[in-house]
Design a protein around this nucleic acid. Structure first.
Lengths: 345, 345
DNA sequence: TCGCCGTATGTTAGCGCTAACAAGAGTGGT
DNA sequence: ACCACTCTTGTTAGCGCTAACATACGGCGA
């Protein structure tokens, strides 16, 4: 909100020496004030500040970036932002970045492709971003990232924690354990799993958590299917499941790797005359805002994506400050709603 | 994918004169090659290009922005990207921008606040963005935009088409008419409406379309409620609706201003023992990917958000090329699924 | 009184690039 | 053989800013 006492807004871009002239100092003194350097007389500082406000001056980021080598910009390489998790994580990242005085430049890939990732990072390097946040939870992307030797710090978000440099993730294994344990506690003999795509890092970790939790509880190994995150794939697995239940098999509890697929699966079950949770209990993952309004309301594992984004920026800042960082973990939480209950019979 | 024949990747950032030295030309010739100027001998051009590839050189965007005054960056001011529409629109924008050689810098506001909008645009101006895309379909944002006298072209996406400069929107009125007409054609005496927030531009336009369509058809005015886009608000209205139907009122068709609220509404209806579409027909708006998996599958008005984003960038490019642009309109489409049918009785 | 140091400010150079101009090399018409 | 032209390449300046150095001034101990 500049208060332009001279009248109308200036059409020509203002530069530092315009401010300097108005304040009766050199452009360098203006620079010192703008950058909060010490050793500026309080009176001078005030005069310059007034001139800045009166003129509505804003420093030119390109010039500053050229001379400092830093653009105060973070590059984000992401994918699937039309899904809740990536979108919410991006919100957390952007707001934390802005809060820290950085702006966020975004590349949204449509495939987790090595060449595309390489290219996105290259472009960011050319833009002199201070750091890149990589948020592509895909095994191929992890490989690409391991190969990458970028000229800029890279922070991995939700990509797993092994040897990738600075990393934040939500504890996927822990979340899967919560889900499985909840179902076992309800008395189900075992828990089956509808996983995500095979090349998803999140899928793989949830799957691992599911296996471990069953093994530790001494429960028999459950059945495993793979979907693609979207409701359609959950629906198809739901039909298969329903047929097998109709044929007399004992399938009473399913841990689904995300809420969307859980939705599709529940719809299919109901269409085939099965009750949730009467015949089959279902647990999702993510806690999308719609989850309480599914029928029945979905029991699910909540991931705090905002926090994930915030921690990502914290990691960037720590890294830029030269600190050594260890993999950071955000803890998931189980929300019990209406889609889980005791097994039938 | 640069082929670094010298061995390992260079740690020090490369500059134009490095390439020039390797190719045995002046840095200016390198500049000409990089920028595709004519009047470079084919042999020289090839030599320079090889040097660029061998070194993996990328021009420094800050230096270029400083001298040209253009950063080949578009700033996006948006909100609510955890919702399907804004997210998908952003995807369309980003990919079109990248395709045109621009990168996208993003600010995600959490409120459609004049000061916040002003500030976001100011920061983008300081970043020397070539243009700003404003995607905040809120009446307060429209006001803020009208007041704004920015030093940079601003293109409004999905904000309505009156006196805002270059604008693209999906035809909200037309979409609403499609929905209403569909329900009337099925034999419903009139159509009620669950609208979005009062200060939403999209809401207002859908509401207007609903009113007009009813009036033109000579149908009696329908009932009007307001929600907040989220399923919870649809659920609440659904309970009210169910009570009134139970009390004997004739409420058989509802046009809901987005799919999420339609979901909540349908859940409430079913909980109260009403059938969709047996007792009440429901039409949504947006066509989110989950819509076919609601129960019943939701009849809705599809907005092509990708196209919206693409057109937004086209508008930016046209504007930067100096062309005068008239408000652009993307046509919506009705998708008939299972949530609509003839009225009961 | 002098010199020394710390503080406040100004002056200069240069970040990497592009635009404008300068210069050299060929080409063709007379 | 000469000039006028085009095509190619090089040289120079400067975008707006910050860092490094230079300068001026006041205070304080010897």
């Amino acid at each position: 909100m500049s208060t332009d006492t001279t009248g109308s807004a200036p059409a020509r871009p203002l530069v530092m020496s315009d401010v300097a002239a108005r304040a009766g100092v050199s452009h360098q003194t203006v620079s010192r004030v703008v950058n909060g350097h010490p050793n500026v007389a309080p009176l001078t500082r005030a005069r310059v500040q007034r001139a800045i406000e009166e003129l509505g001056y804003r420093p030119n980021a390109a010039a500053r970036a050229l001379v400092t080598g830093s653009s105060r910009t973070i590059g984000l390489v992401t994918i699937d932002v039309n899904q809740y998790g990536p979108a919410q994580t991006m919100i957390g990242l952007e707001q934390a970045a802005r809060g820290a005085g950085y702006s966020l430049s975004v590349t949204i890939l449509d495939r987790a492709d090595t060449a595309a990732i390489q290219d996105a990072v290259d472009r960011f390097v050319g833009q002199s971003v201070d750091a890149v946040v990589m948020h592509i939870a895909d095994l191929r992307a992890v490989e690409a990232l391991e190969l990458l030797d970028p000229l800029v710090p890279v922070v991995a978000v939700q990509m797993g924690g092994e040897g990738l440099g600075p990393t934040v993730t939500v504890g996927q294994e822990a979340g899967a354990r919560l889900a499985v344990q909840h179902l076992l506690d309800l008395g189900h003999p075992t828990v089956h799993h509808l996983s995500g795509p095979e090349n998803s890092v999140e899928s793989a970790r949830r799957l691992a958590g599911w296996r471990e939790a069953l093994a530790e509880a001494g429960a028999p190994a459950g059945e495993l299917w793979h979907g693609d995150w979207w409701p359609a794939s959950g629906y198809e697995v739901g039909l298969v499941l329903a047929d097998r239940v109709a044929a007399g098999e004992q399938l009473t509890a399913v841990f689904v790797a995300n809420d969307q697929m859980a939705l599709g699966l529940m719809v299919a079950l109901r269409e085939r005359g099965l009750a949730v949770p009467g015949d089959v209990s279902v647990v999702g993952f993510d806690d999308v805002p719609e989850a309480p309004y599914f029928s029945p309301p979905l029991t699910t594992v909540r991931q705090d994506f905002d926090e994930l984004g915030r921690r990502g920026v914290q990691l960037v800042l720590a890294r830029l400050a030269g600190a050594d960082t260890c993999p950071d973990l955000v803890e998931p939480r189980l929300l019990v709603r209406g889609s889980t209950g005791a097994p039938p019979g």
